[in-house]
Structures are given as C-alpha cells and as structure tokens.
Design a protein around this nucleic acid. Structure first.
Lengths: 144, 144
DNA sequence: GCCAATTCAGTTGCGCGCAATTGAATTGCG
DNA sequence: CGCAATTCAATTGCGCGCAACTGAATTGGC
C-alpha cells in the first residue's frame, strides 16, 4: 500500500467526521427552527442557560469560536430579544452577554431536544457516552 | 436528572463532533494551503483522483454536498486550473468535471498529507479505523 | 506616571453549507 | 407524438467560521 493509497476517501477519518457533524446539525435544524434558533445560536444559549452573564471571550473559550463569528451571531440573538449585550463596567474592553426573560423562557421549550436527537443516533446511552469521550479526546489531540 | 439537565453542553455528542470536525479541518489547512486548496476543494480532488470525469450530481452523492455548494467551488477549482467543467454531450443537463494535468499532478504533492494528519490524532491505525467506523455508523443513523 | 505590549470586541473579506428557487433538458405516461 | 413530471446545474440569500486587521482599553515594566 503506497502513501497515495491513503488518499482514498473511504480511508479518511476527517471526512466521516465532517459529514456526521453536518448531518447531526441538520437533525437539530427542524427542532431549533421552531425556537427561531440556528445550531451555533443554540450552543450559545446552552452556555448562557448554564452560566448567565458571560463575556464574549468566555463564550469563545467554551465554544472554540472567535469574535469574528460570535459578534454578529450575538447581534442576531439580541435582535431576537433572547440576549442583551453590554460593555463591562469594570473592564470596558469586555462585553457581557446575558439572557432576557424570553431567552431564559426558551430553555423549557428546548428541554425535549437532546433526547430527540439521542434517539436519532440509534445508540444506547453507554455507546453515546463512549463515542462522545473518544471524539473529545480526538479533538484535544488535534487542537494543539 | 430532569430533561433540562441533558441541555448541559458537556453531555452533548454533537458539540464535540462539531468541534473535532472543525479542529481536524484546521489541521489540514496549513498543509492544503501549500497546494492552494481548501478542505472541501481537497475532498473534490480526492474523488477525482479516484474517479476522473464525474458529474456534479455524482460528486454531490459522494460528498453529501449539493449544487449550491459545489457549483461555485468547482468554478474556483477551474480558475485554479485543477479541473475542467463541460456539459455532457449525452445529457445536456449534466456537467462532467475532469482533472487537468495540473490537477492530476497535485496528487503526488498531496500524498504526504493523510499520514501527517493521522499522526496529529495521536491514535493508532486500529483506533483510527474503529473511530472512523463508529462515526460512519452514526452518520448513517442520523442522515435519514 | 509613562508608554510599549497586550487584551478585548468589532470589522472585513472570503469560502463554504444549505434552503429555496429558476430554467433548461430529459423522461415517461397516455 | 405531446405534454406533464422529473432531473439536472445554477443562482440567490443568509448564517456561519476564520484569517487578518483595527481601534479602544488595560496592563506591566521601568
């Protein structure tokens, strides 16, 4: 097997990962569109539901996204009235993002989504947990 | 554990998948930029290196991408002189994509990439193969 | 206290992805 | 044959991702 054989599409890891990631996002899409959210917007809401009032920097660290992605996304969430954005009093470079009452209320509507998605995977909770752990390890290896 | 607990970011499968997919593409990026390619363009080249002269439809079936993504991408590959696009004689609705000599020559320059990426994952060949299979199965479950 | 270095969010530009639509070509049914 | 339904690629519009850069605010060394 020569080094060029490794160029075969069916032998690559990245391509299935890329295809699976997009397919999972597509599975979320009809559920999220009922809430008026895209998948990346949903990720931001997940963070805020856990920890309200984070800075753009902290959001970026949790989601591995930069301000070039987050700033316009957060502006859209603000237009939707799910979040507020305000310059920090202590450090005027920083912007704090916090939930509006509507943003907080959205959490209950989103509560059924994770289980619906888990079903779509056809995996048991144990298989899901193992795959998540393996993919997380891969991420950690690759992202440095 | 209530249904809202499943909204925790660290319990989701999709988010690690999404992060890992992007991190892997980022690992490819410096290697591919030497060839003048983006990752999706590289995927198209992988298909053409295996099967030259496929239609846009066939490319889409192999890569799970539609004409809205492929048409402009292929135009860019054409501008780079790696592929040619021409209406099929037999069926004028279809467009056949084929490699130019430069496109074919690029394969040798790309030959070292898969191994370099495999190293970055920190996984053995067996672990890589197993993860690829698991992710592929996930994709098949979710994408219907 | 000063000022260079750093840290923030924001902006610009570009290439995807993808839904929705268009228009041309082909197919298939009566 | 005739024409409606289908199949193609292309287009439009929008929301990411991300590299590169900007400008304002803060920090740290002296």
């Amino acid at each position: 097997m020569s080094s060029e054989d490794f160029l075969r599409l069916d032998l690559q890891l990245c391509f299935p990962l890329y295809a699976a990631s997009r397919a999972m996002v597509q599975a979320y899409t009809p559920l999220l569109s009922k809430l008026g959210l895209t998948y990346p917007q949903y990720l931001v809401m997940l963070v805020l539901w856990e920890t309200d009032g984070v800075s753009v920097k902290e959001l970026g660290e949790k989601l591995y996204l930069d301000s070039g992605t987050l700033t316009p996304l957060l502006k859209r969430l603000e237009t939707l009235a799910f979040v507020r954005r305000e310059r920090s009093k202590e450090d005027a470079r920083s912007v704090r993002v916090s939930l509006t009452p509507q943003g907080r209320a959205l959490r209950r509507k989103a509560a059924s989504i994770p289980e619906a998605i888990a079903c779509r995977t056809g995996l048991t909770m144990e298989e899901l947990a193992r795959l998540r752990r393996d993919v997380q390890r891969l991420f950690e290896s690759v992202s440095r």
